[in-house]
Nucleic acid binder design. Structure first.
Lengths: 366, 366
DNA sequence: CCTGCGTGCTTCATCGATGAAGAAGACGGG
DNA sequence: CCCGTCTTCTTCATCGATGAAGCACGCAGG
């Protein structure tokens, strides 16, 4: 039996009585040695069961490993359940794959320490940070790595500069304008009693409930903040008082949370005639809650979402279409540019548009 | 200005006049030095902008990088579009994440060389190979790495043993029995003219069309082979001739391919009254094709899928429910076991069950 | 015949960290 | 007062490869 210790370059070199470097060249730089010797080296490698240069060692020496890391605000497991996250990853991989780059999905964790350790310890050439809060230490850890970085959605470019990462490729949409558009749509339909169902405003878990203006302004998620600001813009433009609009916020962007939020705001008095949900998944839950209460949509209640992902079309949901896939692609491209030493592209605001479907209609004549 | 060269352990050590090893310990083994010194080290590290031990170098020395690789038969980009693949990844990540392991999605490529290079060069502690053909060099490359391995669906355990990887954790379902169950269901409904719409039988792209028994038997995808064998079992058990059942095969598992396949088999004479699709996505396309032809489902045509993933429930599709997510989870667990040096779990056949919904019904009385 | 250059291979240092083993001082027990 | 043990830190070798530079040889040109 042969020794079962993993083989190295030196083993192959020793077997043939040549230098290790030549064996290395046989694998990595075929032009550096004669074809005959190369064949001989490869044959010997096969015979000895040498799997080719250890990528880890090669990576250390070369300073490249051929992978980009994706750090997601929430955990991975959550990411795969969220159509928006999946679409984003699809966009990232569509760009990374042809470039030959692997995608390292960095594990999240409820334990903050481990969460950061995963970022610090990721074996990658660059990091793609997706949608984190303004003060998330995850981002600080990413910046600390000193690796090329790219950011999707949040924090915003100005915040990135403040965090010591100016010139970081950034991709997002104009959340504020888009939110104003949906709200404006509902107001134009005659709705005067709106309510908002939002996901979390801060990373830290909160007790779900109504959020006053103070809480809203203090939201560390820029996306949340801006969408709320957009709703507010439209509401005030219509001459209404933002303070009279109940804004409920819960945890993650899931149907369950959306349902809970809808229940909560529908219980307020006077009851709203239209719900502005910060995501389609929340809207999905809101629709379920409405159905549970026997409310007809849109006759009794209008519901609007945000994202236009996953089942939005199937639910005939009025929402904002975000080019989620493109966001991933553009961010990946920006990151790969930085890795290759090319200049960082400027922050990129992709278009978002209102998509009116069947879940919004004229306000009921109460 | 400080020099912008990345800092290393030695820089920090030199700054404090202590050994590099002590700095290393400050980060990795806090119990090995006094708390005061540790604080001092960390503070100095912060001050110098040292991002903590280089994961690559640490990985090389330790022989661990904290990530598992996922190699998918088709490319990544495709994977994110396929609900089955996404569910599988969700299962994998649900297990990997709490274990603190990252998920490296290995890029595919149309270029065979690069495809293999990506596997050979992946910086991981183990490889999860998902659903490859029996003779796919990808698998050989994975085996050659000498890393812990786990396989989902195919190749089957016997084939793995033949490839020099006996004892590899394997997870799948009994495709043959499950396929026999769907086909049996249709036969019990009185259908006598069945047709099959299949995805590819080999990795190499083929011209879509009808596949004779010879081609079927030569399929290098074990899953395809077994599902066809299952259909055949049921057909012959019902006293029918398998050779009279048109079996169409195309490329990927997509609605477009399914629609093309449905068109093709519906054009045969006598036209089938029931379609057996090898996946839900194919079935999705088949339903669209049927609608396009003005066929009522299931009055005029019954359609059955396989997987019970994604929109199957929404489409009210009769199908086979596979525990896709659990497959991913079990495979990941098996792989992590191997990485941790624990014995490999035996091959695991998870349950699959027929789910009858609204797309299958009694054969039309022609 | 000498110079100059390209080919093919080697030597050496290095990438950045960590395991194993060891030394210096502190401390407690007999 | 001495010895053993613990704590705290150090030294040394090593993980497996590759960039840079160098050496030897062959061949063409003057």
């Amino acid at each position: 039996m042969t020794a079962d210790r993993p083989r190295t370059l030196r083993d192959v070199a020793a077997e043939l009585g040549i230098s290790a470097k030549t064996v290395s060249n046989a694998f990595s730089r075929p032009d550096q040695l004669s074809p005959q010797l190369r064949e001989q080296v490869l044959a010997t490698a096969r015979r000895l069961g040498y799997p080719g240069p250890n990528p880890l060692a090669a990576g250390l020496r070369r300073g490249r490993v051929g992978a980009i890391g994706v750090a997601y605000d929430n955990g991975l497991s959550y990411a795969f359940d969220d159509p928006v996250a999946v679409a984003l990853l699809a966009g990232v991989s569509a760009v990374a794959e042809p470039a030959g780059a692997g995608l390292l999905l960095i594990p999240g964790s409820t334990d903050g320490r481990r969460r950061l350790a995963a970022v610090s310890g990721a074996v990658v050439d660059g990091l793609l940070v997706v949608s984190t809060g303004d003060d998330d230490p995850l981002l600080a850890a990413a910046v600390a790595r000193g690796l090329p970085l790219a950011v999707v959605d949040q924090p915003r470019p100005d915040r990135l500069a403040a965090l010591g990462a100016p010139g970081t490729p950034w991709v997002g949409v104009d959340d504020r304008a888009a939110a104003a558009a949906v709200a404006g749509h509902l107001l134009a339909l005659g709705h005067r009693r709106l309510a908002v169902v939002s996901f979390g405003m801060h990373r830290d878990p909160i007790r779900p409930g109504l959020a006053g203006e103070r809480v809203q302004a203090a939201a560390t998620y820029a996306v949340t903040r801006d969408r709320l600001a957009g709703y507010r813009d439209a509401v005030e433009r219509a001459g209404l008082d933002w303070a009279s609009v109940p804004v409920w916020h819960g945890g993650d962007s899931t149907p369950a949370v959306g349902a809970a939020g809808a229940e909560a705001v529908l219980a307020t008095d006077p009851a709203p005639t239209a719900l502005l949900c910060l995501s389609d998944r929340l809207a999905e839950g809101a629709l379920a809650a409405a159905a549970g209460r026997g409310l007809r949509v849109p006759a009794d209640l209008s519901v609007a979402g945000f994202d236009d992902a996953g089942p939005a079309a199937g639910l005939r949901l009025t929402t904002v279409r975000q080019p989620t896939r493109d966001k991933g692609g553009a961010a990946a491209r920006g990151l790969l540019d930085r890795i290759a030493g090319r200049p960082a592209p400027p922050p990129r605001v992709l278009p978002a548009e209102l998509v009116v479907r069947a879940t919004t209609g004229p306000a009921p004549v109460s």
